[in-house]
Amino acid sequence: MATTEIRITGFGGQGIILCGYIIGKAASIYNNQNATLTQSFGPEARGSACSAQVVVSDDRVLYPYVTSPQILVALSRDGYKTHKDNIADDCIIVYDNDLVTLEKHGPKVKTYGIPATRFAEELGRKIVLNIVMLGFFGAVTGLIPKEALRQGVETSVPPGTQELNLKAFDKGYEYGLQVKKKVKATA
């Protein structure tokens, strides 16, 4: 029974919930797995720290909440600080390395950084930073097939923005493959 807990954190407006939604949708609708998305609601989630949680499993998800994620996606310093201590020993941390400075983690923790916001700006619209990050997440974790994630993007973003979003996804994905190759080469 393979179950993976994912937490995506950042601040309201970065597209954190949509990012979680696409991961869950890609896994459950386009990759035939089970995925449960929950999110932080409430005043604290409006404009300040906010997070989405996804549990992806081959079996039915019985416990809906994330307790110690195997993957932490951090898009803001605040979000990272709030959640950095509640992670699995072998957690994969995926983060925007222009916005988040990592602190010391255990020896089994793997970290992958991407200047997602900068890449999004270069693509012309800062708003797609979450999709750049999603592509990067897809490449470095290998949790969900690329095609499933792309389908998730295509069917979830506003009509008329698919092309830009898929470009953003591919940008993140390609960068992810490069980073992974580099890590392998140095290992």
Binding site: S28, N34, T36, T38, Q39, F41, V61, P64
Partner: peptide, 9 residues
Amino acid sequence: ECVGHMTEK
């Protein structure tokens, strides 16, 4: 609230 705000297939 848990079921209401939980997203699944």
